[in-house]
């Protein structure tokens, strides 16, 4: 399967990554060769195979409903690139 440049651009937008024009060309080639390589999985018939999400299944029964964690406001916003009044400041968010 060959990937189109427009597709790479779409995916980059989805991943919120700015990709320079000249980098995009190279990226298309690199992804093409990787996708060609991973295409070898198609050799295998996996119709009746269950997917593995967790290699070793841990039993998870959850935790009790207890309040036992919490950072100070200073710890939360103290290292933010931009903050105001104990909140994170970002360029305008619309429709909220």
């Amino acid at each position: 399967m060959s990937i189109a440049k427009t597709e790479v651009e779409k995916v980059a937008r989805l991943a919120r990554l700015e990709v320079e024009e000249k980098r995009a060309e190279k990226l298309v080639d690199e992804l093409d060769s990787v996708l060609e390589y991973v295409g070898k999985l198609d050799e295998l018939d996996t119709d009746d195979v269950e997917p593995t999400t967790h290699p070793v299944a841990a039993e998870h029964t959850g935790r009790d409903d207890e309040v036992n964690e919490g950072l100070t406001v200073e710890q939360v916003v103290g290292h933010a690139p931009d903050q105001q009044d104990g909140q994170f400041r970002v360029p305008k968010v619309v429709d909220e």
Partner: peptide
């Protein structure tokens, strides 16, 4: 394990 209480000071009920 952070508290869920409504109406607290902003960013005062935040776990890592």
């Amino acid at each position: 394990g952070a508290s869920t209480k409504y109406g607290a000071e902003p960013n005062s009920q935040v776990a890592p």
